[in-house]
């Protein structure tokens, strides 16, 4: 009996921080935001329960267009990040020696060492019309005049890929790490070409890591703020910018909360659809070692 009690107590002690974290930092704020989003302001300091904020969203094409645009660009960033990150992850997990492995990991961490703002300004210095890349192009004779590479969607996407690529690499490396090299060798031995081995053995094996990486990258991208705002052009709107504007510029906390909930729901839907389409489910993704 006492043994059991002690076990239960230690379990409770272990779980408490996790539960506190879940409840205080995740559940409560979302409940608060959900509650706010269902209030409609009818007069100064007078609010009613209503779905007006959600209806407003539906009636304003600017809002849902921005949400769709954000989702599409985030999907694009996710796909590009996968294409960039997978070879790097494969190299780190299967090709690199132990020492260069650590170095490569550190290299991938570099983007995270500096703040979002500094990173964005770095890109601006590189890509602006009078910036380094433009200068190099002219110097090399590849361009007759200055080239503006800032303020467009391509720049936003490149900047985002650069920022989030680590979050794709880490989960893929950790699944590939668990893969016995002899599976790959068996793939070749039985007559597989490089492409076959990649497609039928390596990628399926890494699938849990790929899915986890894609979810993280998609969520991070859809929720990012500074990179799209600073690098984006005159027409580019990111949904988080809308949320910021609602909360901060327009003092419209009710609208901002609505947008926050919508972003959460919509990105979750996209993730769910992605899992369905790729035939994966969250349990195998997270639970597989």
């Amino acid at each position: 009996m006492p043994r059991k009690d002690a076990d239960r107590l230690s379990l409770i002690l272990l779980m408490t921080p996790l539960l506190l974290w879940l409840v205080l930092l995740i559940l409560l704020p979302h409940l608060g935001i959900g509650y706010l989003s269902l209030r409609e302001k009818v007069a100064p300091r007078v609010y009613h329960f209503s779905f007006a904020n959600y209806i407003d969203f539906l009636h304003e094409p600017i809002y849902w267009n921005t949400l769709l645009r954000t989702a599409w660009m985030s999907i694009l960033v996710t796909v590009l990040t996968l294409f960039v990150g997978f070879p790097i992850a494969y190299y780190i997990a299967k090709v690199a020696g132990r020492r260069s492995r650590a170095a490569l990991f550190l290299l991938c961490l570099v983007p995270l060492w500096v703040s979002d703002l500094v990173r964005a300004f770095g890109w601006m210095m590189l890509l602006r019309e009078t910036g380094i890349v433009s200068g190099l192009l002219q110097w090399a004779g590849l361009s007759s005049g200055p080239v503006e590479m800032l303020y467009n969607d391509v720049t936003v996407i490149v900047g985002l890929v650069y920022t989030v690529v680590l979050f794709m690499i880490v989960p893929i490396v950790s699944t590939l790490d668990g893969m016995d090299n002899s599976l790959i060798e068996a793939g070749y031995n039985l007559g597989g070409s490089r492409l076959t081995v990649l497609r039928r053995i390596i990628v399926p094996y890494a699938m849990p890591g790929i899915v986890a990486g894609c979810i993280i990258v998609f969520m991070l991208t859809a929720g990012s703020y500074l990179t799209p705002v600073l690098l984006g052009g005159k027409n580019s709107m990111w949904f988080t910018e809308q949320i910021y504007d609602q909360f901060i510029t327009r003092y419209n906390w009710e609208g901002g909360s609505t947008f926050g909930i919508l972003l959460l729901v919509f990105t979750s839907l996209v993730v769910w659809a992605g899992l369905r389409l790729s035939g994966q489910n969250l349990a195998t993704t997270v639970a597989k070692r």
């Binding site: 070409s193 039928r200 053995i201 699938m207």
Partner: peptide, 21 residues
């Protein structure tokens, strides 16, 4: 000749059966 063109097949120490198939 690369490994995938050699008509020599191998049973690996830990068998290396493909777990995803």
């Amino acid at each position: 000749t690369p490994p995938n063109r050699r008509n020599v097949k191998m049973v690996f120490q830990h068998l290396a059966l493909f777990p995803m198939m």
